[in-house]
Amino acid sequence: MLTILFDGVAYGMLLFVLAVGLCVTLGLMNFINLAHGAFAMAGGYLTVVLLNKFGVSFYLCLPAAFVFCAILGAVLERTLYVRLYDKSHLDQVLFSIAIIFMSIATVDYFMGASQQIVNLPPSLQGRLEFLGASVGVYRLFVIIICGLMTIALQYALARTRFGSRLRAAVDDGRVARGMGIDVTKIFAITFAVGSGLAGLGGALGTGILSLYPTFPLKYMILFLIVISVGGTTTITGPFFASILLGVADVTGKYFLPSFGGFFIYTIMVAVLILRPQGLFVRGASR
């Protein structure tokens, strides 16, 4: 039981690192980037290539995935996404579906449709006894890295000059602009960091998440659940939502495998019904 809980927490924290960039960009620019998962996929496949083809250490793959995806995100943001901010939500959705389709086809073309397996370094294999539960070393590693990332993010948001500007911009973009904060620049940086984190999550999760070309579609739904449950105004909301979702998903699949994803979709719709305005006040007021 404890093992399942542990696995669930690991999965949840991974989801948080994957989704947090989307939450912040959604809250900041009211832009729904359904293609966020494509960046995570890019990070995952980069790791697969570096690790399996070039024998780069898994530990080095992680920062590489972060940097690569951050640059990728920054480039796409400046060239494409920036044109979409003042368009309708429908246009934004169509645009991100287009990105998803293109990323799926591209990955399929270069890497094939089959699932990618990575060989984790020996130091991450094996299990530990921890509080009477059998714990995978790899999952423990995932939790530690994601935990560090979360703490770093929280610190950056709460304590740095950039963080306070970001919070001001999320709170009220117009007022922030009026105060001379360069919201566009903040958004570009946030988008890049968010994409980088997604890439890091994708790289980190290569052993947990199944890496197919359809990855962006599959995880898009999970990200949306994280957002709908956690909201977009803080990062603690999505954090707890991710943990909840991770634990619910892992335990649900363990005890009631025949229900599959039914469980979490129902949660998502229920939350949206009970608190649609509460979670999307910003979206509605625009």
């Binding site: 939500h89 599959g260 039914f262 979709y265 998502m268 019904i273 999307f280 979206g283 509605a284």
Partner: peptide
């Protein structure tokens, strides 16, 4: 009645969620 409430974003996600539930039900 679920779709009436909320913004475009909420509508997108509620309709998507409902379709996913139908999909999952058909599978299970």
């Amino acid at each position: 009645f679920l779709v009436l409430r909320g913004s475009d974003l909420t509508r997108l996600m509620v309709t998507l969620g409902l379709a996913l539930i139908v999909d999952e039900t058909a599978n299970k």
